[in-house]
Amino acid sequence: MLIAEAVVAALLLTGSFFLLVGSVGLLKLPDLMTRLHAPTKATTLGIGSVLIASVVYFAAIEGRVSIHELLITLFLFLTAPVTAHMVAKAHLHRDRATAERLPPAAGGGGWATLDDDPEPGARSEPSGP
């Protein structure tokens, strides 16, 4: 019992440390693109540790198995990259200075966010009723 409590406490402390670092990064880093790194990474291990602590607590101390934590992990891993991607796209769309300094794509084309009509004429306008 004591060991389980120690493990839970250690996991909670690790988790809080990484969550705190994520928030510090959000405050400290200079611009939007670098700030995006803090919540997508420093926090995944933070949330992960807290969730594992929850699994250990319910399994070892309350004696029942809880699997909701696995689902939270799954949803987090699905949603965090998508959110970060959309925020980055919106930023590129709004910030001309950053958009102009982007490296060119490997195939010679443009980036999907910036080119609303990649190949002129490729997209046919609906004509007539």
Partner: peptide, 22 residues
């Protein structure tokens, strides 16, 4: 998704032709 979750990188955009990732 993997790039966003791993060391110091966030994937930001895809090229028109789907051939490169920013």
């Amino acid at each position: 998704g993997t790039i966003t979750m791993t060391p110091g990188t966030v994937s930001s955009d895809l090229s028109d032709d789907g051939g490169s990732l920013l």
